[in-house]
């Protein structure tokens, strides 16, 4: 199991457009990725390809989230997702 943490950079938090961009990126990966707030149990982690899950996570600007994945290419995949979360997507 690979694991990465990321600090949400978008000012609006992981909502709206930033959430859409993130979910679309997860959807293109061949592996399953989960997301949870830092400090929450692994069992509560949610499907990162679900916009509704991401929205209900309620991650705000500055919050730390944990991404997890397993399988071939998991490390590279998570690195690319961290990059997305740590960019202020709302500013573009």
């Amino acid at each position: 199991m690979s694991e990465r943490t990321a600090v949400i950079a978008s000012r609006v938090g992981l909502h709206a457009r930033p959430a859409g961009i993130f979910v679309a990126a997860v959807g293109e990966l061949p592996i399953e990725v989960t997301i949870s707030m830092a400090g929450e149990p692994v069992d509560d982690a949610m499907d990162a390809s679900s916009i509704l899950s991401i929205m209900s996570l309620g991650a705000s600007n500055g919050d730390t989230v944990v991404l997890r994945a397993e399988g071939d290419g998991a490390d590279e995949a998570l690195d690319s997702l961290v990059k997305i979360l740590e960019t202020d997507l709302d500013a573009e």
Partner: peptide, 16 residues
Amino acid sequence: REVLEATALMANDPML
């Protein structure tokens, strides 16, 4: 456009 993109993702959302 943003509203449509977001609702498009919801339509096929794995959780739903």
